[in-house]
């Protein structure tokens, strides 16, 4: 009980360091066509460490270039994706304070043609 109360009082956003502002494609988006790339925008410079894309329990290979300099916006190219629900799991590192930021989001492709993704969603 005491632990539950303490957790309630102290609760807040997980890993409140570099903050994810938006993604492209947006979280929970229903896309008519498959995106060619995936972009994450932050409130400060980060280095993308890990990005895992899964669909129906299968991991889709995605290359993350860890040698890139820190930037507020990071992108990865995607292979040709087929219709289905995709889960994105990412983690990034802030070069200023060394803190880890991470999260997950998903999107759904209902069509099958690869075109650039739509406007970004905003995370609060």
């Amino acid at each position: 009980m005491a632990v539950t109360v303490a957790a309630g009082i102290l609760a807040g956003p997980a890993f409140g360091h570099a903050k994810l502002l938006s993604t492209l494609p947006p979280a929970d988006a229903q896309l008519q066509a498959a995106p060619k790339s995936l972009t994450l925008s932050f409130n400060e410079n980060v280095r993308l460490a890990v990005l895992t894309l899964t669909a129906a329990g299968r991991t889709i290979p995605v290359t993350v270039d860890r040698s890139l300099p820190a930037a507020p916006q990071v992108s990865v190219s995607l292979p040709v994706l087929t219709p289905g629900k995709y889960q994105v799991q990412w983690s990034a590192l802030s070069p200023d304070d060394g803190h880890v930021t991470k999260g997950t989001f998903s999107f759904v492709i209902v069509g099958s043609t690869a075109v650039p993704a739509g406007p970004a969603a905003t995370f609060r």
Binding site: R47, A49, V50, R66, L93, S94, P95, D96, D97, G98
Partner: peptide, 16 residues
């Protein structure tokens, strides 16, 4: 991740 040299390197370079 503990055996991934480039990940460990990133943490090392970020101040640690």
């Amino acid at each position: 991740g503990m055996l991934d040299g480039s990940l460990v390197g990133m943490v090392w370079q970020a101040g640690a």
